[in-house]
């Protein structure tokens, strides 16, 4: 049974990788389309982190963009100013960003409900101010431009060219890895615990689950995903500024998770795939992006709290449920021995 599931999973990931590579190669001739695909991949990675936090654990964090920003600025600093290899700078600054995120978020994680949301928002706004007012690290409001793409040397392949579709492939595989991490967590006992925390944290604690510990772990892992995404965003677009990582980004990522279907593996992917390209395709109407996303936030909250995929799933379950409803007979049986 377990082996069957494992091999089924394996095929799922392999076809995911094939799809990702196929998408990147198919758009290779059209830089505009390729760029949209690349940004979708980055958002899939970010939404995977947000999904773990919000979709599965029930924590609405508004400081996710700030953490991504720390990862981005940290990587760029190490990469450009200290001459580190990009591939070494990313994990170091991602772990650093996640650690900072946890240290900042730790006191807030003790708070419940709305107070946690508000604290995370306050931290996000403070981080944005820090990005603006510490120009020695961030170049302030102007931002950092012309960040070069890193080179990559693979044993057996030699130097790989990352200016073309190579980089989209890397972003796609990264996104896939992020989704796989979330998937594996959800399948594990930790997954059962964080869902329990989302459903009723007091009851989870009552059953012996160390709620704070799991919240911190989830926060750390999702911060890692956010920060890695931030680092790759920096070298992919070549430009970062405090505005790239402001509260609007946190809200947009939240929206993609909620719109696609929180607490499902496919939902956030669907959300990113639908919502990311829209502002690009609006072209000269790019200005109304905020109005569009803002309206969607309200619409999703009011009309479709389960999201696109969640709604489909629900409908499907109801159909299946109708086919097997059984009632338990009443007869007293022996109590099990201790």
């Amino acid at each position: 049974m377990n082996r069957m599931r494992a091999s089924k999973d394996m095929w799922l990931w392999i076809s995911g990788a094939a799809l990702v590579i196929g998408l990147a190669l198919a758009t290779a001739g059209n830089r505009f389309a390729a760029f949209i695909i690349g940004i979708v991949f980055l958002n899939v990675l970010w939404t995977a982190g947000m999904n773990l936090l919000y979709g599965y654990t029930g924590l609405v964090s508004m400081m996710t963009a700030g953490v991504a920003g720390i990862g981005a600025y940290g990587t760029v600093k190490l990469f450009l100013d200290y001459g580190w290899s990009f591939w070494f700078a990313v994990p170091v600054s991602a772990v650093g960003a996640a650690a900072v995120g946890v240290i900042l978020g730790l006191p807030a994680l003790r708070l419940r409900g709305f107070y946690f949301v508000l604290s995370s928002l306050v931290i996000q706004v403070a981080l944005t101010l820090v990005f603006i007012y510490f120009p020695q690290f961030t170049n302030g409001d102007t931002g950092i431009t012309q960040i070069p793409r890193p080179g990559l040397w693979l044993p057996g392949f030699g130097a790989v060219d990352l200016t073309g579709p190579g980089f989209e492939i890397i972003l796609g595989l990264l996104a896939l890895a992020g989704v796989a991490v979330v998937y594996m967590i959800i399948r594990s006992r930790m997954g059962a615990f964080i869902i329990a925390i989302r459903e009723d944290d007091l009851l989870a604690e009552e059953l012996g689950i160390d709620v704070t510990r799991y919240k911190v772990m989830v926060f750390f892992i999702s911060s890692l995903l956010m920060a890695v995404g931030g680092a790759f965003y920096a070298v992919y677009t070549g430009f970062i500024s405090p505005r790239s990582f402001d509260v609007l980004m946190s809200m947009n990522i939240w929206l993609m998770v909620a719109f696609g279907g929180r607490g499902t593996i496919a939902g956030p992917i669907i959300g990113s795939a639908i919502l990311v390209p829209i502002p690009f395709l609006l072209q000269e109407l790019y200005q109304i992006k905020d109005i569009f996303y803002g309206s969607l936030i309200i619409l999703v909250t009011v009309a479709m709290p389960a999201g696109v995929y969640g709604t489909i799933l629900k409908w499907w379950r109801v159909r299946r449920q109708k086919q097997n409803t059984a009632v338990a007979p009443v007869a007293i049986k022996r109590m099990p021995a201790e």
């Binding site: 709305f114 200005q287 109304i288 109005i291 996303y293 309200i298 009011v302």
Partner: peptide
């Protein structure tokens, strides 16, 4: 039940809409 969170998110959406409207 947890409407303060829902409200906060919804009014953040309103914030985003209005700031978009203001800037254009």
């Amino acid at each position: 039940p947890d409407r303060n969170i829902a409200y906060f998110v919804v009014t953040l959406g309103i914030t985003q809409i209005l700031s978009g409207v203001f800037s254009i």
